[in-house]
């Protein structure tokens, strides 16, 4: 059972990292407050089921919409406040959101909020059910992100990430796409929050604090921002290290902090980012392999690029 719980935790981090990757990796907008939207989703869901008596499955879309709407507001903010200052603003939003959860009695204040495990076919959902649900969502989200990369949306976000002025000069509505990126990314974080709340059955404001935002950001930065493979790898690595080496669990933040510093200093593209050392080696090997295959099958060098 222990492995299942670990799997769920890592799965939740993968979902969060993929959702942040849409905002920070694809659209290039720094967000150091992603956990706030995770929290908004979790609290929305917890209040809906525990206080208002709604069904768990209904909380998934509702949490996504609530977090997405507030995220759209952050998108509006990003139109005015850029780069570092956007980063600071998101820290502030994280801080204020957590303070609201922590000091408002309706949100359980410092006692947190308790919810019950949802029912599935008349039976309480167990850890295994949650794991299946989360894995299914990860697969869907990866497919969704792949689609973004291949679509006009992906190109528009890439334009904004690289140069807003140039993006506007080829007809991209920069403001609209920034808001889209924030809305999608935060809505997905909200959805993840709903699952988290019902899996944990208890949520505290501190679950959604700045350190959580930093953990999520660390995952995409270390894995390779802007790529699905990097984001997922980063979440798995950072999620699993403290579990594999039990003695590490006490050094978790030391490890995250140290890795962030080293990565930024020596490999800002991340482990598997598009221009990272490892990925370039891998691509080099792959194209040499393709070339050799091409030669052997007598097609000459034609297969070398593709």
């Amino acid at each position: 059972m222990y492995e299942v719980v670990v799997g769920i935790n890592i799965g939740i981090f993968i979902l969060l990292a993929l959702s942040l990757n849409i905002i920070t990796g694809y659209a290039g907008q720094p967000s150091l407050g992603h956990a706030a939207f995770f929290g908004i989703g979790a609290y929305t869901a917890a209040i809906m089921t525990a206080k208002l008596g709604y069904n768990f499955w209904l909380t998934l879309p509702c949490s996504a919409v609530t977090a997405g709407l507030i995220g759209a507001l952050l998108g509006l903010v990003s139109l005015r406040v850029r780069n570092d200052f956007l980063a600071i603003t998101t820290i502030g939003i994280n801080f204020v959101t957590v303070a609201i959860f922590q000091y408002t009695p309706y949100f359980g204040a410092s006692f947190g909020l308790g919810v019950e495990r949802p029912q599935l076919f008349g039976q309480e959902m167990g850890n295994m059910h949650f794991l299946v649900l989360i894995v299914a969502l990860i697969v869907l989200l990866c497919l969704f992100c792949r689609r973004i990369e291949k679509s006009w949306l992906g190109l528009a976000l890439g334009g904004i990430r690289n140069n807003e002025e140039a993006a506007a000069s080829i007809g991209i509505n920069v403001n609209m796409f920034k808001i889209i990126a924030f809305t999608i990314g935060t809505a997905l974080a909200g959805l993840t929050g709903a699952i988290y709340a019902h899996h944990m059955t208890f949520i505290y404001s501190s679950d959604f604090a700045f350190v959580t935002s930093i953990s999520i950001l660390s995952m995409i930065v270390i894995g390779g921002m802007g790529t699905i493979r990097g984001t997922v790898t980063g979440a798995i690595i950072l999620g699993i290290i403290p579990e594999l080496f039990r003695f590490m669990s006490d050094y978790r933040m030391l490890l995250y902090g140290g890795l962030l510093v080293l990565m930024m200093r020596f490999q800002p593209e991340g482990l598997l980012g598009d221009n990272s050392f490892l990925w370039r080696q891998f691509k080099g090997l792959y194209s040499r392999y393709r070339l050799r295959q091409g030669l052997e099958s007598g097609k000459g060098g034609a297969a070398s690029d593709g």
């Binding site: 980063a87 930065v221 006490d250």
Partner: peptide
């Protein structure tokens, strides 16, 4: 060494260093 990188690189590095220091002090 990271001055000519995009501004998010030194920012993330500084956050990393900050967390590292805090946890080191705790340990």
């Amino acid at each position: 060494p990271v001055l000519d990188r995009p501004p998010i690189v030194p920012l993330i590095a500084s956050i990393g260093l900050f967390i590292f220091i805090q946890d080191l002090l705790r340990l």
